[in-house]
Amino acid sequence: MSLNRRDFIKLATVGGAVFSSGLAGMHAFAKTGKQDAFYFVQLSDTHWGFDNRKFNADPQGTLPKAVALVNELDPQPDFVVFTGDLTHTTDDAQLRRKRMAEFQEIAGKLKTGNVRFMPGEHDASLDGGVAYKEFFGDLNYTFDHKGIHFIALDNVSDPRARLGDSQLAWLKEDLRQRDANAPIVVLTHRPLFDLAPQWGWATQDGSKAMALLMPYSNVTVFYGHIHQEHHHNTGHISHHSAKSLIFPLPAPGSVDKKHKIAWDAEQPYRGLGVRSIQADMPGAAFELSETSL
């Protein structure tokens, strides 16, 4: 990536969020110094263990490169969240665990001590999340950070891409305890809306989760899965997908058959990147900064 591109900052406003791109944007977030403001980093779809040089000529170097980029930030983000597909799927349960252990070791090099993990279907669909839980803990959970309530949903451990009635009941009970205007961030792997069902870019019962979230006025969803930046609004709720850290995929519905985009030696790491998210408290729009590797 050239310095020009790194230093390029473009601001736009879509769906209540402000966007910028470039490492300079991330550093600007880090140094706002606003009281109560904080930022976190979203990394997604690292697919540790994937090794097809046609699509990524540096499969073992891409994740460490992203970790190094995040570690450059000063001050450090309050936390980093990985929104699923930490590892590439395998039928071999032992190899799955080996990949998870290797991923965990690399992610452990992030300077911020606060790292949140979420499963993707590659991590959890073939064994119902058994191995994932051994390494990373619960498949769905909540946490609070500086006045924002974060809800991590699991729409991957069921191979049919469902949240399931039990998790929906859990979500309903969690939301029941929130004020209608409470700032809420939902983290998922798959989109909760029908982005491109013909490509599997949907959650079968995602509309049920959206129905539970709709009464709340300040909800933002961050997700992964589609290996590209994408922004969408369902009413007042905005959804933002992040780039992958292994290979990009085409824009939804842009080609007849979904396929991985080949590595471009002229533009290595093209389409791969890191997102930082600035939260100005309380309840203000998030500011998103996208940085290419």
Partner: peptide, 8 residues
């Protein structure tokens, strides 16, 4: 499409 995850 196959909508039940079946592997790589």
């Amino acid at each position: 499409l196959c909508d039940i995850f079946c592997g790589d």
